[in-house]
Simulated scan of single mutants.
Amino acid sequence: MRTKYTKVKKMWADMGYQGRNLKNHIKEEYDIDIEIVKRPPCRFWVHKDTPPELLPTREQGFKVQPRRWVVERTFAWVNRNRRLSKEYDLLTTSTENFIYLAMSRVMLKREYA
């Protein structure tokens, strides 16, 4: 994939991939920057004696997050495969390989459709 898609410079990932080791490895090995797309906070812990003017504000209602749809769309593509829709496998390597297969299928369908 790296030889064919040489112009890839940025990836968007879910909050589950926010470890520093992964980000550094991808940057050093492939020269690709990973941006973690975070959800807006929905709950806050505050002390009971906090005055109301110091409470954090929260926007009400639905708000589209930038690039969040890209991550969610990719999860939808992966979950179309029955084997990946639930956690059937005991080994994470099996699940990882099936994710590679699922995304290869998506890319091949896009290339030859």
Results as ranks from 00 to 15, higher is better:
residue 41 P to K: 14
residue 99 I to F: 02
residue 66 P to M: 01
residue 18 Q to E: 15
residue 26 I to G: 04
residue 108 L to K: 09
residue 103 M to S: 13
residue 36 I to L: 06
residue 97 N to R: 10
residue 92 T to A: 08
residue 92 T to I: 05
residue 32 I to V: 15
residue 56 P to I: 02
residue 100 Y to E: 07
residue 58 R to G: 07
residue 3 T to R: 09
residue 31 D to I: 00
residue 87 E to S: 08
residue 17 Y to C: 06
residue 105 R to N: 12
residue 102 A to F: 00
residue 51 P to E: 13
residue 82 R to H: 12
residue 108 L to A: 14
residue 8 V to H: 04
residue 7 K to Q: 12
residue 102 A to R: 01
residue 101 L to C: 12
residue 23 K to S: 13
residue 19 G to N: 14
residue 100 Y to P: 01
residue 86 K to R: 13
residue 63 K to H: 07
residue 68 R to C: 05
residue 24 N to H: 10
residue 87 E to A: 11
residue 45 W to M: 07
residue 33 D to S: 12
residue 94 S to E: 06
residue 79 N to R: 13
residue 8 V to T: 13
residue 55 L to F: 09
residue 105 R to V: 06
residue 60 Q to R: 08
residue 92 T to D: 05
residue 74 T to M: 14
residue 64 V to E: 04
residue 59 E to G: 01
residue 7 K to N: 15
residue 22 L to Y: 06
residue 26 I to F: 11
residue 63 K to C: 02
residue 33 D to A: 10
residue 42 C to M: 10
residue 17 Y to A: 01
residue 89 D to T: 04
residue 60 Q to V: 03
residue 73 R to G: 02
residue 43 R to T: 14
residue 50 T to G: 02
residue 64 V to H: 01
residue 76 A to E: 09
residue 64 V to R: 03
residue 99 I to A: 03
residue 10 K to N: 10
residue 64 V to L: 03
residue 93 T to N: 13
residue 90 L to P: 00
residue 110 R to V: 09
residue 38 K to Q: 11
residue 45 W to G: 05
residue 31 D to R: 11
residue 82 R to E: 10
residue 105 R to E: 10
residue 79 N to V: 00
residue 103 M to C: 15
residue 55 L to N: 07
residue 28 E to H: 11
residue 8 V to F: 04
residue 63 K to D: 01
residue 45 W to Q: 09
residue 1 M to P: 10
